[in-house]
Write a protein that binds this DNA or RNA. Structure first.
Lengths: 337, 337
DNA sequence: TTGTACGCGTTATCAG
DNA sequence: CTGATAACGCGTACAA
């Protein structure tokens, strides 16, 4: 079992001091070209890689940022994460991802674990979490950016879009087509500001037209296809039956499509369905979903850049809004006459 | 900006040495109960967390394992990863995930980066990669486990299923239903043993029945919905037209469904389609896909356990086969008469 | 432009 | 059961 070469080995082989070798990695411009070449040759021939722990200890940086997302099991966060990873990688920073399964306590634990690992910064989803968590971040001075939700007056660094306004816009469109009995299958709003904002937005639009959005026409469901299907079946059994179902995301909407079908009805002939997020799923189900397109990749990249800037000590608040547009597809049509 | 408390601060506050504090974390049984309580109180009151870098340096372990997967953008690897993460977390080990986008060189770079970060072990997808990569792993003595593919005679530690046999089984089933003109939309087989094994398996079954599987009835496509749709449109333009399309995974099959529909034909009335993997997508498209069910969660958990065992110095080769069964759904039917 | 020497926070060895 | 102390590998003042 050959032991790993260390800085000292490289130094000895190339006939310079360890300091110079270190500089070749961390400040190449300070080293004369010829010396650098020699060192690089030694590095290559030994297959040397810097020891992460030693580096972290000496520099007090880990070149790692953490992200805590609710889940990897659907595509909602995947694209954004991928973009973050790519942006960070360009800066030589590694992204460490963990998942909370939409569980508040678990998220707090994950955050603590990441901080314990010495991450240089954190990417968090949404803004609703315990004050204690934010206090921990402030106390440790760990930079962070909240993604996926945005408010103009948010006191915290955020990169996202206005969930409430987007939800209002799509609901408005549904009303505009002539629907009057409109139901909503929302995500679980407890501890989830995005889910809550989407309900609020939908209600904004409906009440502006004198329509209500209350149980049993408003139901919350876990973000899963099956939960969406079950909720839709229940809605289809109501009297009077809604002619449109707004869904908290595309996964729920996909379930709703199935639930409506199971009830022997047809989308959009008997009932319209809308989604939210515009993940790939929205395009491939039948009929494809009218939904709110979220620019996941750009949002992820922006968030990563903002976090890098924070880590680099950039001053000033971060508050970046992305656009979220309605994409019309086959799942939305005027109500049956 | 309050500085982080260190081991020494805890030691001072609780009136013991740093060694004892360290033991409270790493070998609690060696410390007298009363002393331990005192230390734990100090830890709590200071909000102390061990410094990751210092720890990694002194112990030469990072309690981190890495995984390099092709992509997070579809659900193929998500479930398995989640299971791995959970299993590892129980052992106090963190999973560091990076993605290669099905690019061989990029995968090699990611592996090198993870090793550089001092991961204690690696989880890799499939077995086809450069010898140099395996040599690097052997040289550094980094334990690893290959997941998602399996051969009885694999010389490397692997936890997976027999892609070839599973593909043969589903192809066999298609033949059994009476299909004779059978096409396949495979994944890119270059540098991808799973994709290649699936083609080989399908061909095994077809040739056993005197049927061929060759271009233009055999095409390769990137694992994306659009590529699948495009390939299917091309197949639908062939004369004679195939009556069944075997797909390399569920994403391609979803695309195939769309492509067939765009060609003005119906699944399964005119053409049958089969998938592979049984991700959630397979259940929600219309018609739902007949596919090969892969026990992703169990596979991930087993792989994680095997890797932990390797890290703990368990001897003996790892070679664990999972079952993969055919799930019949609406996308497969007898050929039109 | 390069080298010397110290410190980063923890674990591990060994003696008590 | 506990304490003193030497590593662990690297970055960086400071000196040359």
């Amino acid at each position: 079992m050959p032991t790993q070469p260390k800085l000292e080995d490289v130094a000895r082989l190339s006939g310079v001091s360890t300091a110079t070798v270190s500089r070749v990695f961390n400040a190449p411009t300070l080293v004369r070209e010829e010396t650098r070449k020699r060192v690089e040759a030694a590095v290559a021939s030994l297959g040397y890689t810097p020891h992460f722990g030693g580096r972290a200890l000496a520099s007090n940086r880990t070149w790692t940022v953490g992200a805590v997302i609710p889940t990897m099991e659907n595509a909602i966060f995947a694209r954004g994460l991928q973009a973050m990873e790519e942006t960070l990688a360009e800066a030589g920073v590694t992204l460490l991802v963990s998942t909370s399964n939409y569980d508040c306590d678990r998220e707090a634990a994950q955050i603590a674990a990441l901080i314990g690992r010495g991450v240089d910064g954190l990417i968090l989803i949404g803004e609703s979490r315990e004050d204690a968590t934010y206090e921990l971040l402030e106390r440790r001075g760990t930079p962070y950016v909240l993604v996926w939700s945005w408010r103009a007056d948010s006191p915290r660094p955020c990169v996202g879009f206005d969930n409430r306004a987007a939800a209002a816009a799509i609901a408005e469109r549904v009303v505009e087509l002539g629907h009057r009995r409109i139901a909503m299958i929302a995500g679980i709003t407890d501890h989830n500001d995005r889910a809550a904002a989407r309900v609020d937005g939908a209600r904004d639009a409906l009440t502006a037209h004198g329509l209500a959005l209350e149980p049993p026409y408003l139901v919350e469901a876990k973000y899963s296809v099956d939960a969406g299907a079950k909720a839709a079946r229940a809605l289809m059994a109501l009297d009077p039956r809604p002619t449109a179902i707004l869904c908290g995301n595309d996964v729920l909407a996909t379930g709703a499509l199935m639930g409506v079908r199971e009830a022997g009805l047809s989308v959009p002939r008997d009932v319209s369905v809308t989604g939210f997020d515009d993940i790939e799923l929205a395009r491939v189900v039948d009929p494809p979903l009218t939904t709110v397109h979220v620019p996941h990749r750009r949002m992820g990249a922006q968030a990563a850049e903002a976090l890098l800037a924070q880590c680099a000590g950039a001053p000033g608040p971060v508050n970046i809004a992305m656009e979220a547009d309605i994409i019309e597809r086959g799942s939305l049509a005027p109500p049956p006459t």
